[in-house]
Design a protein around this nucleic acid. Structure first.
Lengths: 255, 255
DNA sequence: CGGGAAATTGATGACTTTCAAGGTGTGTGG
DNA sequence: CCACACACCTTGAAAGTCATCAATTTCCCG
């Protein structure tokens, strides 16, 4: 485990000049609101690989945005077993797991050297009170996290290992595409260990899946760089678990 | 699939007379707030087994509280595969999956004949604006759902089938105990099918686990009635997945 | 450049699913 | 009120998937 350092970096880039402003908090705010937000942000959080952003049961210090690098969030049971809950890439927010109790429910760890922006909880609360756009940010984020958890549950509960990995790749590809990057060629910033944990399988299983898909010409890998060669094959694998006799249930609601 | 009926029942019980008022919304409100809440509740929702409370992608009609019976919520993928997300017992709330977009993300189905109370979204929004207690209810509920999803993820990703079932039983037992009922003897209102789906295993696997635990004297079952005979054995099974060489990570935080 | 962590590969076997059949209970209609 | 049908649950046998263990290779960092 790396030592804890909280370096203060230079702090010159304003939100409206930040390359992430369309996918970060500002995209839901007016120019005036951004101006005000600006004064409340600590843009100097610098983390080295394996350092914690925050830890479970800890009093929350604020809400974070990933500027560069990557962060994983995970929960741990009393036996020390870890389950990775989400990977946070540039533009993603984290820290909302504490917004009801004030204490974090999961651990957040830097996967590589990472830059973060932070708003303190008090200021975030205050901004939520005064800015409708900020409440939108919060609702949107919490809804996103709930949806994410449900999808992951569906994946872990119902899909085979290769289906899960294919679906994961497609999700990451869509993520990068929506941010203007290549959806065919990208870096997976996490260890195989973390990814296999997230996908609910052994490292060896993940490794074998990747090898098999490479052999089949579906993708190419060079360490953490992934190149998708046959996206339709990937889609076919991701949706393989199709029960033939499923019919959509009729709409019998109470209202 | 049962037909859709929306019967209006008699509506005489006030919240402060309801046996669930300590575990339902009123427990976070002042007497005056309850008085006001009272006027906004439709207490007449009556569902038959297998009817939907609401369905995925549907415009949300409100927030619900289970008065009697039981409801399951589940998500479905494009292949029609279902994953049960949660079982809602008397006193539990549901409908918060729509609170950011206004549209539900999951299906909610009555597991047996069920009575519900409902507040419309508009009135809920309005009450949240005016009553601090109501915001507390919302935050608490959303936090609860996030925590629940994370725990279920941890369970599906890291535990063996019998560990998952044991942990589930202990959770239900704790739930009933906290509501003043027996923690040793209770009814599981859901089908084996739904429970096995929730726990991420085949029905047959669940059935075999139950049989084995009965043979081992850990529990007795009569259809849906469960009697826990040896709770410590159950706890031992639930926590079995203890890796011997896990040490708690040192506290290296950024703040 | 060397040590160690991370990733891959292979062999084996446990756990779980699947398929199939039988049993049990519930509810509905006569 | 009874009987029958159907849905639900249980049990058994066989097959597959995936985890585990162990060894090797690759790559990263100091």
């Amino acid at each position: 485990m790396k030592p804890s350092i909280n370096i203060t970096a230079d702090n010159t880039i304003k939100c409206d000049a930040c390359s992430l402003n369309q996918i970060c908090i500002p995209n839901k705010l007016t120019d005036m609101e951004v101006e005000e937000l600006e004064t409340s942000i600590d843009k100097s959080i610098k983390l080295k690989k394996k350092q914690f952003v925050f830890r479970s049961n800890e009093e929350a210090n604020g809400v974070y945005a990933v500027k560069s690098g990557a962060v994983k969030t995970s929960v741990t049971n009393k036996n020390g077993l870890e389950q990775v809950v989400e990977f946070h890439l540039p533009g993603d927010l984290l820290g909302f797991d504490a917004f009801d109790t004030g204490k974090h429910k999961c651990n957040a760890t830097a996967l590589e050297d990472t830059l973060l922006c932070r708003i303190s909880l008090e200021e975030f609360d205050d901004l939520c009170d005064r800015m409708p756009g900020m409440r939108k940010v919060m609702f949107h984020q919490v809804g996103k996290e709930i949806t994410h958890s449900q999808n992951l549950l569906l994946s872990l509960g119902q899909q085979q290992t290769d289906e899960r990995f294919a679906a994961f790749l497609l999700k990451v590809a869509a993520h990068y595409q929506s941010r203007g990057f290549s959806s065919k060629e990208f870096v997976l910033p996490m260890l195989r260990q973390d990814l296999s944990n997230y996908l609910g399988m052994a490292v060896e299983t993940l490794s074998r899946i990747i090898t098999r898909m490479s052999d089949d010409g579906i993708l190419e890998t060079n360490r953490r760089m992934i190149t998708i060669k046959d996206i339709s094959a990937l889609e076919k694998i991701a949706h393989a678990s199709c029960a033939p006799d499923i019919v959509p249930p009729p709409a019998t609601n109470i209202i």
